[in-house]
Amino acid sequence: MIAILDYGSGNLRSAERAFAITGEEVVVTSDYKTAVEANGLVVPGVGAFAACMQGLLAINGDSIIRERIAQERPVLGICIGMQILFATGTEHGKHSGVGIWDSEVSLLDAPILPHMGWNTVEPDSSSDLFKGLESESFYFVHSYAAKTAVGKKQTWTTHGQKFLSAVEDGYVSATQFHPEKSGDAGLTLIKNWVSTL
């Protein structure tokens, strides 16, 4: 079973449907035990960093994520769900994140923001998430991003400057783009992640 963490952040229906295409059972939940014990946990997220952290803390989502990692259970963060895994975010002032990765998420230096639309990726050659997807594009919508390497495998994208578009770090993976909105390429990435569970 895959749990999609409901912490009051945006539309979860597309994510639910996209993950269900893999044939796995999918639940949208904010229940602690369900979220900790699912085979895979998806941390989605739309909105501002601080507001999302507030919603996450309200359901003890930070503990859910840490406990899962300690128990070697996979977690996939998407968009803000990726950003809040970092130590700090600088959107509307400096805010603490869950701190899985000890670096910062900050404003992209680009002429046009938000970075909105389909962009290409440069995955690590041994990436599991991007297997067969090396030349595909994915749908981004964000203004902030992490720019220093964290985790075991990094995937990079450029908009104004180079930033981390995905991280694979053992049991924690994350994408800055929205795989559930990235057409067939996104659905394949989701299948790739589910196949690692």
Binding site: R13, S14, R17, A18, Y139, V141, K181, S182, G183, D184
Partner: peptide
């Protein structure tokens, strides 16, 4: 909108 979002995975 509901029915579209369930089967079309682009924005």
């Amino acid at each position: 909108v509901r029915r579209t979002a369930e089967q079309v995975f682009i924005p």
